[in-house]
């Protein structure tokens, strides 16, 4: 089973490279059972969006 530390690595890397099918499955399994990582997943999406908005907000 994937732990939270490695799961957050995969979540983050999904923004930088295509994940393999196996990685995606492991990640989804973990997310089903872990609320902390589900929150983290949403927050990562927000951080990407906000960082890309920042040049317009300076």
């Amino acid at each position: 089973m994937l732990d939270c530390k490695h799961n957050t690595e995969l979540l983050s890397q999904s923004y930088d490279r295509p994940l393999t099918l196996r990685e995606k499955m492991a990640m989804r399994m973990h997310l089903l059972m872990c609320r902390g990582c589900r929150n983290f997943e949403k927050q990562l999406a927000f951080i990407r969006k906000a960082a890309r908005e920042l040049p317009r907000k300076l």
Partner: peptide, 23 residues
């Protein structure tokens, strides 16, 4: 420091309230 030895969150992320509004 964010994770325990077993790889779980030391303090799991809590929900963020209305992040869209923050923007």
């Amino acid at each position: 420091a964010l994770f325990r030895q077993n790889g779980r969150w030391a303090s799991p992320p809590q929900n963020w309230n209305e992040p869209e509004q923050a923007m």
